[in-house]
Amino acid sequence: MTGRVIVITSGKGGVGKTTTNANIGTALARAGNKVVMIDTDLGLRNLDLLLGLENRIVYTIVDVVEERCKLKQALVKDKKNPNLCLLAAAQTRDKTAVTEEQLKDICEKLKKDYDFILVDCPAGIEQGFQNAVAGASEAIVVTTPEMSAVRDADRIIGLLEAKEEIKSYKLLINRVRPNLIKSNDMMSVDDVVEILSAELIGIIPEDTGIITSTNKGEPIVNDEKSLAGTAYRNVARRIMGEDVPFLNLEEETSVVAKVKKFFSKLVGKEK
């Protein structure tokens, strides 16, 4: 088995990298893939919290690198899904504790046993970013329709393009607020895609459910009714090669459009 190593990165902090990682990872595992997530944000780990695994961590990636345990021992299994596991970051160390080579090595080893290795990248473009990217051949760049996030995403894309190992990168636009876009108060998904001229892999609507799901340590993809959850599940399907149309977020908010769609479905003339 040769797994795909995908780094999830953004440049700017707080745009939802870790949330994206937890949700895509969970969705991929739910679809039957063997998935391992690596948190490379040494000193500022959070992926364990989003997955509700914070109390189960015994060994971290630094323990693996410093040979205090075997790689397999450090992998923490998810509560619900045996296909999913986490290699946690060390909370007490800084970015220098792991090198690019060591991360590459870990990814190579994991590739043999897993379909997907998702690397959660720290914010910034320093060593932490370089480390996270080292073992990956694909990247997902997370951004929001805000100026600072888009600018940082542009920088990250520039850095990714300069990396030979990264064969492809795709854009995920998080925290999309259809109402603000409609009133022309926020840049639209099309604006962001045009400015960054990158291929899109996901549009995730702003969802208060994310907050509660984070608080519970339960990724929102497990909530079948959540719109953001559906959007993340769609991203996972696209990663697996399926051709899934993007959610039309504006439609969801407009009652008239819903009624129209309902009737057009009745008549059988759905566009």
Partner: peptide
């Protein structure tokens, strides 16, 4: 003015990028 917030953001971003 508010209607233009999107365009303002887009244009500023273009220049800065």
């Amino acid at each position: 003015k508010e209607e233009n917030a999107k365009d303002v953001a887009r244009n500023r971003l273009r220049v800065v990028l």
